[in-house]
Design a protein around this nucleic acid. Structure first.
Length: 258
DNA sequence: ATGACGATCCGAGATCGA
């Protein structure tokens, strides 16, 4: 089965891109971030016509996440249990997979703006809450994938300018320590299980010809739990929709389990 | 140091993102 994560930067603005991409890439599960719409605006009909049912956790203007699936999603949970959050940032659900059910946890991680800011403090608290909740989630659902826009470039090779951007947002030691803590829960970065091109990124700034110059970051990730690790067949970033007119600034990332 | 792009919103410039 294939599971994809994609920050679409407004599903209103990107619905046609999502439909076009799914027509060419009929993955089993598509985890979306930054819907930027309330639940009542969600385009269930158009996606159903494309073959997908959706579990949605929307929010007006900002944030918002959804799980699209060809097969039913059960046991849906919204946000981090035990962590009070004004924002709609996490949706989790269970889908049928090869060899048993797969728990998909889809997160739009906090950006954090700038180290030292209130938003950065919120990012740290959010990550701490996520980690604590995942610990129990992994006990209840050992076959788990954590996907989404992490807003963390885990290593220097995940940034177009690791020296110039050292200790700036996405690159700080604190953020990377949180990423390592997720790995410490037993999760594995599926992308790095395979040989990948140098300077592989999943996000490029709209400004200053960021994409054309490949000035990007790898901040969208797929982490797999130990029981799923031997089933990982492939993991890749699809840059094609980033070249379409009026694109999201993120590219979809896909893992294949089987 | 700032702005550069893009999306959003009681509709123009502010806020946010990364």
């Amino acid at each position: 089965m294939k599971i994809t994560t994609w920050n679409v930067n407004s599903l209103t603005a990107r619905l046609q891109h999502v439909l076009d991409w799914l027509a060419a890439n009929p993955v089993d599960v598509l985890a979306l971030q930054e819907l930027k719409m309330s639940d009542d605006k969600f385009p269930h009909d158009a996606l159903r016509e494309a073959g997908y049912e959706a579990a949605v956790f929307g929010q007006k203007t900002y944030n918002g996440v959804a799980l699209l699936s060809r097969t039913p999603v059960s046991d849906v949970a919204r946000n981090i249990a035990g962590f009070a959050d004004e924002h709609s940032r996490v949706i989790a659900g269970t889908v049928a997979g090869p060899g048993g059910p797969v728990r998909v946890v889809n997160g739009y991680f906090v950006n954090g703006q700038e180290p030292g800011s209130d938003k950065f403090a919120y990012k740290m608290a959010w990550l701490t809450g996520l980690q604590a909740w995942l610990q129990t989630e992994l006990v209840a659902h050992p076959r788990l994938v954590l996907v989404g826009d992490f807003n963390i470039a885990p290593e220097d090779r995940d940034s177009y300018d690791p020296v110039g951007l050292a200790e700036t947002i996405h690159h700080t030691t604190e953020e990377r320590d949180h990423f390592k803590a997720l790995i410490g829960l037993g999760l594995t970065d599926a992308f790095r299980l395979f040989e990948q091109p140098e300077k592989s990124f999943s996000w490029w700034d709209y400004r200053m010809l960021g994409y054309q110059k490949n000035r990007g970051l790898r901040i969208d990730h797929i982490l797999v739990s130990p029981p799923l690790l031997p089933t990982v067949q492939a993991c890749s970033i699809d840059r094609v929709p980033r070249k379409w007119p009026k694109p999201s600034d993120h590219a979809p990332v896909t893992v294949e389990l089987g």
